Amino acid sequence: NAVKVAIVNEKAMMDKYPGWKPYGGSKSKTSDEITDRDRRKHETKEERRLRRNIRAQMAIENSRKEELGL
């Protein structure tokens, strides 16, 4: 259960791998997810309520589609 730590020469890595960025973090989050999260910070209560209602409506429609398909 040892943790391995690497000391990285950032300039050498950038030269060798042009797409590499130091402290890049997780690749699972796209820029769309990040901007969406930032936008939600400034939403009003009404906007959050509308977003919830839309998600609920989509869930209802999906469950109806599954019932018809089964």
Rank of each mutant, 00 (worst) to 15 (best):
V5P: 00
A2T: 08
R52A: 07
E67D: 04
A12H: 10
E33H: 06
H42S: 13
K21C: 07
K41A: 00
E43T: 03
A56E: 06
N9I: 08
R55I: 11
V5W: 01
A2M: 07
R64Q: 11
I54G: 01
N53A: 13
K65G: 01
H42T: 10
Q57D: 06
E43N: 08
K41H: 01
E47H: 13
E47T: 12
E67Q: 03
D38S: 12
K41G: 00
D38F: 09
R55A: 14
Y17C: 07
P18T: 05
R40F: 02
R39E: 13
S28M: 08
N62S: 08
V8R: 11
K16Y: 12
R51K: 13
K16S: 11
L68T: 04
P18S: 05
V3S: 11
E61G: 01
R51P: 00
D32V: 12
I60C: 01
V8M: 13
L70E: 12
E47M: 15
M13E: 02
G24M: 03
R64I: 02
K21A: 08
R40I: 02
D32Y: 15
K27I: 07
K4P: 00
P22N: 10
A6Q: 05
Y23R: 09
T44R: 04
D15C: 12
G69V: 05
G69P: 00
G19S: 13
S31Q: 14
G24T: 01
V3F: 04
G25Y: 01
E47P: 01
T44W: 07
L68Y: 04
T44L: 07
V8N: 09
Y23N: 12
K41V: 00
P18E: 09
W20R: 04
M13P: 00
E43K: 04
A12S: 13
E67C: 02
D32S: 15
D38H: 11
V3R: 10
K41D: 01
S63I: 06
A12D: 11
N53K: 14
N9D: 13
E33N: 11
R37L: 13
L70T: 08
R48H: 07
M13N: 01
K11V: 02
K29N: 06
I54S: 11
D15T: 12
T35A: 04
M14G: 05
T44F: 09
H42G: 05
D38A: 15
T30W: 03
G69N: 06
A59F: 03
D36L: 08
K21H: 07
A12T: 10
G25L: 02
G24L: 02
K29E: 06
G69I: 02
K16C: 13
E46T: 10
E61L: 09
W20Q: 02
R55L: 13
T44Q: 13
M14P: 00
R39T: 12
K21F: 12
D15N: 15
K65P: 00
K4T: 05
G69Y: 04
D36F: 02
A59H: 10
Y23I: 04
K65H: 05
I54Q: 12
A56K: 10
R37W: 03
K27C: 04
V3K: 11
R37A: 15
A59R: 11
A56F: 05
K45D: 03
V8D: 05
K29L: 15
R64C: 02
A2W: 04
E61Y: 01
N1C: 08
